[in-house]
Computed example of a mutant assay.
Amino acid sequence: MRYVKWGFWALVAIFVALFLSYNLPRHDIVRVVGTEVRRVDFGENSMFWASADVGSASGTSRDVRFINTVRPNGKTLVFRNEDTGWGWPPYFKLDSSDLQAQAESLISTKADPIWVSITRYGWRSRWLTIFPNAVGLKQVSGPDVRIIPWANIIILTLLVLLILTIRAMWRQFRQRSIDPLFDDASEAWDGAEERANGWFNKLFGRKR
Rank of each mutant, 00 (worst) to 15 (best):
G7N: 06
F8R: 00
L11V: 08
Y22E: 08
V30A: 02
V32F: 00
V32W: 03
V33L: 07
T35F: 01
E36D: 08
V37F: 09
V37G: 03
V37R: 03
R39H: 13
D41F: 09
G43M: 04
E44M: 09
S51M: 15
V54M: 12
A57H: 10
T60E: 14
P72G: 01
G74T: 03
L77G: 00
W86R: 14
G87I: 08
W88D: 11
P89V: 03
P90I: 10
Y91R: 05
A103C: 13
S105C: 00
S105H: 02
S108T: 01
S117I: 07
T119L: 11
R120D: 05
W123A: 00
W123Y: 11
L128N: 04
N133E: 01
N133A: 09
N133L: 06
A134H: 01
Q139F: 08
S141V: 15
G142C: 07
V145S: 10
I147R: 04
W150L: 09
N152D: 09
N152F: 12
I154N: 11
I155F: 10
L159W: 06
V160T: 02
L162V: 15
L164T: 04
L164E: 08
A168I: 04
Q172G: 06
Q172L: 09
Q172K: 13
R174P: 04
R176N: 12
S177G: 08
I178G: 04
D179Q: 13
P180G: 04
F182P: 01
D184F: 07
E194Y: 12
R195I: 13
A196Y: 04
G198H: 15
F200G: 14
F200C: 10
K202N: 07
R206H: 10
R206Y: 08
R206V: 15
K207F: 11
R208L: 11
